[in-house]
């Protein structure tokens, strides 16, 4: 059943990337912009797909916990931290400096070891 964990990592990552893509062009500036932006957001198909994948991710998690120990399954979630950082570079042309790489290294090691017995 490792496919289940792969599916969880992929749905989480793709969902967050689609969310970022759908809100990226919106400009939230003050209370007046809240409702027009929400209307524009709800009309975007990629936002809908992002919400769907996010919901799928939340529903797959308890299923995965029936097959794997929490301490085995949880470290896999850290993989999406790295994937998201890479997506920021490739899809949204963000600059990855040495702070981000070293920082994310600490976080991945920390969050992976958090759930080892």
């Amino acid at each position: 059943m490792p496919w289940l964990l792969v599916a969880i990592v992929v749905t989480r990552t793709v969902s967050d990337v689609l969310m970022k893509k759908s809100v990226n062009t919106l400009d939230f500036d003050g209370k007046a912009s809240l409702w027009p932006n929400t209307k524009r957001l709800l009309k975007k198909p990629i936002f809908g797909i992002g919400v769907f994948l996010g919901a799928l991710n939340v529903m797959l998690w308890p299923v995965a916990l029936r097959y794997f120990d929490l301490s085995y399954a949880y470290p896999f979630l850290s993989i999406s931290f790295v994937l998201i950082i890479l997506a920021g570079k490739w899809m949204f042309h963000e600059k990855l400096d040495v702070y981000k790489w070293v920082g994310i290294g600490f976080i991945v090691v920390g969050s992976m070891s958090l759930f080892f017995k």
Partner: peptide, 20 residues
Amino acid sequence: LIAMSKFELSYIYPFLSLNY
């Protein structure tokens, strides 16, 4: 969602680990 529209993904996403 508002945070994602304002900031770089690679800057704010790691802060989610504060949840842990």
